[in-house]
């Protein structure tokens, strides 16, 4: 089995609280991995640890990406290398124009890859199709970043960033929270468009609803800071029926 990202015995804490307690997980290229688990299991801490969030202190274990440890890498380096987190609660940044932000991020990535930066006109052409597919009004990119956006608009904007930056490992933290059916469909369409047999997805979710739209290859159950079970998509039905308490840790 080839692996794009390998998480080995990962231990991490937020403040004084140990949250991840020896988590192991391997992401295969081109596969959709769903992480499910009850509240407080460590799902969001895992996503933060993978992108180098300042809240999380990794106290043990390692994360390797394409064979290289990223444990001590800064957040922006991880992003430039192709790791993307769609935030559960994207932050509002008044005064930072959305289009300017997107172009700055894209050009930082292009520069990192040795490509020429895009000018404003080239960038807007690139944006047009993505906006249409996501059902986003064109004025959303001329507004301040996430400021005054509804929950659905914020999530669509996260997916827009994903489409533009074309990352290789995509972590979706509760992407379906706060979305109505239309928004969920649009967001899922954006995610499915990114499936190319090479990119890996780590879908973190409480509920199975999003998995009706983004078909997972693997389901991992996260409980008390560890992955306690890994199985195919059939595990979703079992979880729906019996809940997380029914799952015993695999030896």
């Amino acid at each position: 089995m080839s692996t794009v990202m390998k998480i080995e015995n990962l231990q991490a804490k937020i403040g004084d609280k140990d949250i991840l307690k020896g988590l192991n997980l391997e992401l295969e290229p081109g596969k959709v991995h769903a992480i499910m688990g009850p509240n407080g299991a460590g799902k969001s801490t895992l996503s933060k640890a993978l992108v180098g969030h300042y809240d999380v202190e990794v106290t043990g274990g390692d994360i390797t990406y394409k064979g290289k440890s990223i444990r001590d890498m800064e957040a922006e380096e991880r992003a430039l290398e192709g790791i993307f987190l769609s935030f559960q609660h994207p932050v509002e940044i008044p005064g930072v124009n959305n289009a300017y932000f997107l172009r700055t991020a894209l050009n930082a990535k292009r520069k990192h890859e040795g490509k020429e930066e895009l000018n404003a006109a080239e960038f807007l052409r690139l944006m047009r199709d993505h906006l249409e597919m996501l059902g986003m009004k064109s004025d959303m990119i001329s507004r301040s970043l996430n400021e005054g956006f509804s929950g659905g608009e914020k999530k669509r904007n996260e997916i827009l960033q994903m489409l533009i930056l074309e990352p290789e490992v995509i972590i979706l933290d509760e992407i379906d929270s706060g979305l109505d059916i239309d928004a969920l469909r649009a967001v899922s369409e954006g995610i499915n468009k990114m499936k190319d047999g090479k990119r890996s997805f780590l879908v973190i979710t409480h509920y199975s609803r999003i998995l009706d739209y983004i078909e997972p290859d693997y389901i991992h159950v996260l409980k008390e800071g560890k992955i306690i079970k890994t199985a195919g998509p059939e595990l979703v039905g079992e979880l729906e029926e019996h809940g997380y308490d029914s799952i015993e840790e695999e030896k």
Binding site: A75, R78, A79, F87, V91, I93, V96, T104, A105, A108
Partner: peptide, 27 residues
Amino acid sequence: DEKQLFYLQSRGISYVEARKMLVIAFA
């Protein structure tokens, strides 16, 4: 705001550039 700073950095924008974007946004 460190949340805002991190958000920008998580998209590959350097620490210096992210700080600049936030101070200009403030101004």
